[in-house]
Design a protein around this nucleic acid. Structure first.
Lengths: 303, 303
DNA sequence: TTGTATGCGTTATCAA
DNA sequence: TTGATAACGCATACAA
């Protein structure tokens, strides 16, 4: 009760445009005096702009800070949103995203898609829903294509691949890119992994059995690629002399392997910003659209 | 539009009490057909019970899943709330808790306290605000007292202590418990740590310099205790023959040290349930109250 | 058992 | 620059 109306108080709260200095001061004092806190729900209901967005990782919550890719994105998004005074929240479990005003979605399988009542942007291609869901993604298919083409131009003839989970867009698309350049593929040269180090090891051992004459492997993630290199080395193959290994992501580990990993670099520094930009478009009612960020072949020593 | 009123729909949504079977079915069908999703904000505004609660860790978010204590609590709370169909959300950053309907607060320093507009329960004693904030805590002071008394009864005479952060209630109270039985304390026997392994190592080295004749150490956390044992061992002291070491928490690591750690066991399995129970009391408008859970001296081999 | 009416706390649209 | 006033979508006391 500063002797002014609701409306004036609201104006002060939202930037104080079109409010006289005296009124503003009176309101400010009253606010402080009464320890007033705006009600988030009422605010959102009345149509305020979202001020909390959820970082929804469809795969695994507990691994959030262990997976360097997700971690990088998390940090970037936190930053990009904090710049605008918006909080990033981590909803956990099935319907938990209802607690926030908007959603950033990661590692979504087809089943995770479906129309959301909230403004939503997917990180990665929402395969099969490209026209309905806004998204930002790296050029997975193009990147895979670049890598495999590079391997081939380096004179490799028996190029195998370790894929990511095939129910994930990135997994499917990187395999598609491999197919694009290899043409008709020998099934013995394709093994599925799950992006983990361990699955890289297992996949490489299997590959060695199925196709002992392979001379290159395109691995769909750097972490798996490390596993592949380790397994290959243990089996007595030299990298890259006997077998060239190419990864994907340019994760921090790519610089620390021996030999350093040739990989496809994702534009990590751009993704969070684009994600947030797309989210605002969504909030402003623009139709869903997709942003495909270019990737860059980064040649080091493993291939 | 199932041919019924708003109120009936609302009733169906909230359990369907006092609704005829036919009406309920009609509503259910209409709901499915239209893909209706209730608006969370409107619901909360209209006075519904909270259905998203925030797990607010005041210290460090990124370490959430690394700290075994916090991790245990996180899992327990997720479970306890999921049983009631409620989602646990992880708000990150200063004001992020505003996105949820209620708050569970961990590792709060005095500065983090202050009256919240949301129902809130602290895990740990809100020192200086005991009457204003509801809380659930282990008996830190009593536990420390038990441990130090046990050390003394075992014939130890120069009992040192490595404290936790002294701006954290648990840190202060465990030190207070130590004081309670030691009486007038030799300042050379007290070194502050921060609950980390590394700080245990550093503290022990310092203690060895300041008080080479010590014959026991009460360490305020198991993780630090491991560091203390390692440092002691490296310095040529045998545990427990030369120096007895007692920890606090009964973290998983306590069983895996050598020698296995004598420690103060917190009732981890009870804390989440009590926290949630207190939260509902809070929601129902009961005045803040505190729950102090007993701890148990667990004697293994290190003391 | 059902419908009507009111209020929740805020923003936004108008007049004044 | 300000103050009424109407939404916002839902829950609930009360009337029917």
């Amino acid at each position: 009760m500063a002797g002014v109306s609701h409306a004036t108080v609201s104006r002060v709260l939202n930037g104080g445009r079109d409010v006289s200095v005296t009124a503003r001061r009176a309101v400010d004092r009253a606010l402080k005096r009464t320890g007033y806190t705006p009600n988030h729900h009422a605010r959102q209901l009345a149509g305020a702009r979202p001020d909390s967005v959820g970082f929804l990782n469809c795969v695994d919550v507990s691994q959030l800070f262990a997976d360097t890719n997700i971690n990088r994105l998390w940090l970037g998004c936190t930053q990009a949103l904090a710049d605008q005074g918006i909080m990033l929240v981590l909803p956990v479990g099935a319907g938990a995203a209802r607690a926030v005003d908007a959603v950033l979605m990661f590692s979504a399988r087809e089943a995770d898609l479906g129309d959301s009542p909230l403004p939503l942007v997917a990180c990665g291609t929402p395969v099969g829903h490209e026209g309905e869901i806004a998204y930002v993604t790296s050029d997975d298919r193009g990147g895979a294509r670049q890598m495999v083409a590079y391997l081939r131009e380096s004179g490799r003839r028996r190029i195998a691949t370790v894929t990511g989970p095939l129910d994930l867009p990135s997994g499917m698309l990187r395999l598609a890119g491999y197919r694009d350049v290899v043409g008709v593929v020998d099934p013995g040269l394709v093994v599925a992994g799950d992006y983990s180090y361990q699955s890289g090891v297992v996949a490489a051992e299997r590959l060695l059995r199925q196709a002992p004459d392979l001379d290159a492997v395109f691995v769909a993630s750097d972490l798996m690629a490390v596993g592949v290199i380790d397994a290959l080395t243990r089996a007595g193959r030299r990298v890259p002399e006997d077998v060239a290994v190419g990864g994907f992501d340019d994760a921090p580990v790519a610089r620390r392997t021996w030999p350093p990993l040739t990989t496809v670099r994702q534009a990590w520094e751009r993704i969070p910003g684009e994600l947030v930009r797309q989210l605002w478009r969504q909030v402003d009612g623009d139709g869903p659209s997709g942003v495909v960020l270019p990737v860059e072949l980064t040649v080091r020593a493993s291939a």
